[in-house]
Design a protein around this nucleic acid. Structure first.
Lengths: 165, 165
DNA sequence: TATATAATTTAGCCTGTGCTACACTCGGAC
DNA sequence: GTCCGAGTGTAGCACAGGCTAAATTATATA
């Protein structure tokens, strides 16, 4: 009932064999996004979508966002009020939702990043629809360094066969 | 106090001008990951890390996972018990955590995907450390089609100038 | 003007993921 | 054989982000 235990626990305690493990700390830094960063993702998705709606139909309503995100309007309302506290959007009772300057800045940044990701995927041969879908998930996890790399690649003559541009 | 409203609501009701909007439904499909898929992400992160630990030190303990993820052991315990219910891991009180066959399969898949993403980023000129960090976020959001595209690119003579391979 | 309908708000519930504090086991060392 | 400390478990809290149901408001139209 206590087979594979002995050695390892002692090892850990004495700082035993930890060959090529990434190391507890920098791994933690990477994964620490798990919770905190999720809030950022949500914020980014919202401001991006709100910006879209504002552009297309002049205003963004909770019900529009709910349809876009596939959630109930109640969920949207709660999230929007959090974003309002964060200073990204403005909303008054029974009125549409608009972006603050900070919200507009964030939206612009997200949009650009989103476009870059889509273009990269397209250049790699991913179909339009899939590219858009995947980009929505990927875009939130791209550092500025990676974004720059994507821009370099996407903004180029591209791969041999896709010379069509 | 009610300027930009009149027209738009009427428009929406009558199915008015919705120029190039992605359309409520397919957008929703894309964003619907927001909640449900987060569970998948967590599961993937856990099995991947557990697989790592098993390989390196023969067993995975809650405290190791907690250190890796930068969370408390309590959080790990709760998540692990959920994963156990999902049939991905096994764990007995005061004992180490192991993977079920399903967990091993998932871990293998994630690992491969992770490696592909890192390689792609490297080929695009992203530094090793950044590539690993970004890959952790990106890997959960790439479809099989995109994965295939990444593999094609990462496993090829690469771009014109990088003909070194 | 009155009313019907769509949108919004509010209240209340659930689950996931995080925490601290405290109790308990297990294994190794004395 | 006991005891100490690291690792685990449990209780209880907070908050994000889902939901339904019921009440309220705004707008367009009859």
């Amino acid at each position: 009932m206590a087979q594979p235990r002995k050695s390892t626990q002692a090892n850990r305690r004495r700082g035993g064999p930890r060959p090529g493990v990434p190391g507890p700390d920098d791994q933690a830094r990477g994964h620490h996004r798990t919770r905190q960063a999720h809030l950022v993702e949500v914020a980014e998705d919202y401001v991006e979508t709100i910006a879209d709606l504002l552009e297309v139909q002049g205003e963004a309503r909770a019900v529009d966002l709910a349809r876009r995100f596939g959630v109930s309007h109640v969920t949207v309302t709660k999230t929007v009020s959090r974003l309002q506290e964060a200073g990204l959007v403005t909303s008054r009772p029974y009125r549409a939702i608009f972006l603050t300057p900070a919200g507009r800045r964030l939206a612009a940044k997200c949009r650009h990043r989103h476009r870059v990701v889509v273009e990269l995927l397209r250049k790699l041969g991913v179909r339009e629809g899939t590219a858009r879908l995947d980009a929505e998930g990927i875009e939130h996890h791209i550092s500025s360094e990676t974004l720059a790399a994507f821009e370099r690649f996407a903004g180029r003559p591209a791969a041999p066969e896709n010379t069509a541009r």
